[in-house]
Amino acid sequence: MNAKKIDKFATGILYTIAGIVVLILIMLLGFIILRGVPQLSWSFLTSPSNAFSAGGGIGIQLFNSLYLLILTMLISLPIALGASIYLNEYAKPGMITNTVRTMIEILSSLPSVVVGLFGFLLFVVQFKLSFSIVSGALALTVFNLPLLTRSIEEALKAISNDQRNGGLALGISKWETVTKIILPAAVPSIVSGLILSAGRVFGEAAALIYTAGQSAPALNFGNWNPFDIDSPLNPMRPAETLAVHIWKINSEGIMPDAAAVSAGSAAVLIIVVLLFNLSARWLGRTLYRHLTAS
């Protein structure tokens, strides 16, 4: 009797707790969408920002975020692929492998601000790359590598050893067996992992404020020569991203419509991350079906 009452009471509490968690998410999303979506317009998304007056947009920041994301992925994907192939296919269990795994784990748990500070020391100061897209992309690569490596390794691990044996028994090298048979078979889950990490990279700011910088010089979107100073593709220019923009205008408090611009930017960030999440699932499933279908 008593135990039953306690059971009911506890169940009630658990339901309440779960309800509160759901409510928190709904309020968060609701707040951002309700505040942010009315700000969104074509001109907001495409025009440059104003530092001291109202009515600025986020065009350059949005472009910077996307450009940095692409560069980061271009650098980190091959490295993560190589590293995960070595870890899953070649590394023999033992002290050294364990140490390496622990190092990757430590890297993945480092605060992103520490990664940013390291990027500042090494890329900005030591390599004299100054506050630039390159510095930012390299810092984001450091931030992205451990998680991407782990997710690709998981994807490789999920492919049956029968496939590896099949390749080896035909006199094919392990390297080609892995790169030509195992990797393609793992593509669906690799793509899912890649897109999820893209969401993380897109929203990251702490690793960028001292690497890619906090300013967004005007760009000439008619000039695509990466060596020109006002070209959007120039990798040596400083580039404030959308996430950094939100942080900057809120901590400086000079922009008169900072709250509105932040809300709009936050909505864009969330929508992009949501799209990444959804497409990761959808693409993973579609690719998987494509791969296994007759």
Partner: peptide
């Protein structure tokens, strides 16, 4: 195949090694 194998193994080890170097560098620099 054996040449490819050796090259591939080194290449992937290089990738893994670069991550480790980054970790060591972070600790060293800071």
């Amino acid at each position: 195949s054996s040449k490819l194998e050796r090259r591939g193994k080194w290449l992937s080890l290089l990738c893994l090694g670069s991550i480790c170097i980054v970790v060591i560098a972070i600790f060293g620099f800071i």
